[in-house]
């Protein structure tokens, strides 16, 4: 029972209160770069969720059974980034062979996920907070869902922003950042969400 409550707390925290974008600043580059259209934002969000879940699982195993066992904790950063890079490469090859439609839909975003700091971030945070295997995977997936929620909401606002009238110097990134800032303000409301 305790485990279930812990997982629920992790889920709520990762999606709302400690959203990866709005309160932890992880994964801002793809968040700003791939949010001009809702379709691509959804594709990117799903791909990131998938990779974050998988990376959490694989890196937990690598950390527990290879790095910790042989006293190589200081190699964590190097090991994790290599695991993530090869994982992304592997998923790319797998999708190309077995699900070509999904592969073409995700297109260029798949290789970009390697350098998404949300993925490396979630893995490092799992190690820091001493999560067990199930908690790690749940944190990875729900963190990805939080990213998906944020990027889809942001993309739908940005699509309307095109018609807005704002000073020319704020064109592009500045107005997007201000929009994201206001959304972060709204998400701060969730930080009072401490049911458990």
């Amino acid at each position: 029972m305790d485990q279930i409550f812990e997982l629920l707390a992790i889920t709520l925290g990762a999606i709302l209160a400690n959203n990866f974008i709005f309160s932890q600043f992880l994964g801002i580059c793809p968040f700003l770069g791939v949010s001009k259209k809702i379709d691509t934002a959804v594709g990117m969000g799903i791909a990131v969720t998938f990779v974050m879940g998988l990376a959490s699982a694989v890196c937990y195993v690598v950390n527990e059974f290879v790095l910790t066992r042989f006293g190589l904790e200081y190699m964590q950063t190097v090991a994790f980034i290599l695991v993530i890079a090869s994982l992304v490469q592997f998923i790319e090859m797998f999708l190309q062979k077995s699900m070509p439609s999904l592969y073409t839909a995700l297109g260029v975003y798949l290789p970009l996920i390697t350098t998404n700091c949300a993925v490396l971030g979630v893995v490092l945070l799992n190690v820091q907070s001493n999560y067990n295997f199930i908690s790690s995977v749940v944190y990875g997936i729900t963190g990805g869902l939080g990213f998906l929620l944020a990027i889809v909401l942001f993309a739908s606002i940005r699509e309307r922003l095109v018609f807005a009238d704002y000073p020319k110097n704020w064109d592009g990134f500045p107005i997007a950042l201000v929009t994201a800032g206001l959304m972060a303000l709204a998400f701060m409301g969730f930080s009072g969400l401490k049911v458990w």
Binding site: F25, P167, N169, P174, L177, V178, G181, A184, L185
Partner: peptide, 25 residues
């Protein structure tokens, strides 16, 4: 106090980039 929270990060960076675009233009 808001400026030290995540919100402040977005707003201050947005303002800085806008200033830079204005200066370069």
């Amino acid at each position: 106090g808001m400026l030290t929270l995540p919100v402040g990060g977005f707003l201050v960076l947005g303002t800085l980039i806008a200033t830079m675009q204005w200066a370069l233009a």
